[in-house]
């Protein structure tokens, strides 16, 4: 039987009296590969950060496997849109990935052997094992993105939250990374933010369209009306043939 991984009820969030998110209700089942799409400024990243506990909602409830976040923090992995750090920070790829073990590792001061074994495993999975001892200063955009994915995987999460993980890399690398996501979806729930509704539709089984409020979710078929409500103005529809 599948459980509900993320359940959001009547969520409202505003910043300095400006409503960012209104009346959000959504649920993501265990094993889902869910996509969150919508225009810039529509509140996608804000919603993700609310789920992560980085922001506090004014009202409403977010439950992770039926519990408040603080009991379920260890089950969540997070890949940010941009690297939030200085790229000249003196740290190796392996030490960056090991940071995913924070809050889980039981050792004092340094990371344990077990942490290192898990780091090796996820670096293998994301195909960066050969870069393990390289400084992050020397990485390309695509390599850095894999490091961020590996860092999130190192926590051995049950839910992965990804914020436009391929926004800054070329299309070929994008497909390679999505194939990794597809593989990890075998064992964990994924919620991914994307600007490219067409591209992600090959991978996801559920879609949420967000523009301040949820314009559509998986039970509503995505019609051109919905697209208009979502993006306003003129959108060129391109039909994909597979």
């Amino acid at each position: 039987m599948t459980k509900t991984a993320i359940e959001i009820t009547d969520l409202n969030f505003s910043f300095e009296n400006l409503a960012i998110l209104e009346n959000i209700n959504m649920s993501i089942e265990q094993g889902d590969f869910a996509g969150l799409v919508g225009p810039n400024g529509g509140g996608k990243t804000t919603l993700l950060k609310l789920i992560l506990g980085l922001y506090k909602p004014q009202s409403g409830k977010i439950a992770i496997f039926g519990e408040p976040l603080k009991n379920q923090r260890k089950t969540i992995g997070y890949v940010p849109q941009y690297a939030n750090f200085n790229s000249d920070f003196p740290i190796s790829v392996q030490d960056t990935v090991l940071q995913g073990r924070l809050g889980i590792s039981t050792c004092f001061g340094r990371y344990c052997r077990e942490d290192k074994i898990i780091a090796q495993k996820v670096m293998q999975e994301t195909e960066i094992l050969n870069l393990a001892h390289r400084s992050i200063q020397t990485l390309s955009g695509g390599q850095m993105q894999r490091v961020l994915v590996a860092r999130a995987l190192a926590a051995e999460p049950e839910i992965m939250l990804l914020d436009e993980p391929t926004a800054n890399i070329d299309q070929r690398a994008e497909k390679d990374i999505f194939d990794i996501f597809k593989a990890i979806n075998e064992r964990m729930t994924i919620l991914i933010i994307s600007h490219d509704i067409g591209f992600v539709s090959d991978y996801i089984n559920k879609v949420f369209c967000l523009n301040k409020t949820l314009v559509c979710h998986d039970s509503t078929p995505v019609t051109s009306d919905t697209i208009h409500t979502l993006y306003g103005g003129h959108v060129n529809e391109i039909h994909h043939h597979h």
């Binding site: 690297a83 940071q99 924070l102």
Partner: peptide
């Protein structure tokens, strides 16, 4: 570990509790 983590990426350190 903690000192390096907050120096490197404070948002990720927060997410990891």
């Amino acid at each position: 570990k903690q000192l390096v983590a907050i120096s490197f990426d404070i948002e990720f350190a927060t997410v990891r509790g």
